[in-house]
Amino acid sequence: MSEAAMPLWEVFIRARNGLSHKHAGSIHATDAEMALHAARDVYTRRGEGQSIWVVRSSDIVASDPVDKDMMFEPTASKIYRHPTFYEIPDDVGNM
């Protein structure tokens, strides 16, 4: 009864030109071409798409939540990367 699992794919959709592709969800498909068809048939039924990417879920390299502090904490103190860090007199105008 138990059958081999069909590969899982992540679907990314560009809603309009000018926007980046955004994760929409997942589908199962045996190969890339069928994955594109499935993504189209499942995730663009209401005019949501102009372009589709599909990526084998197993090909995605993800950061480990355990490393979250190491990965993302150090940046919190670098406030000089943000424009509000710098004091410019109001009469200079927008900058």
Binding site: M6, I27, H28, A29, M34, H37, A38, D41, V42, R45
Partner: peptide, 11 residues
């Protein structure tokens, strides 16, 4: 045969 194809045929 698959959920994906169910949606495809309905389309």
């Amino acid at each position: 045969p698959t959920l994906e194809e169910d949606l495809a045929l309905a389309n």
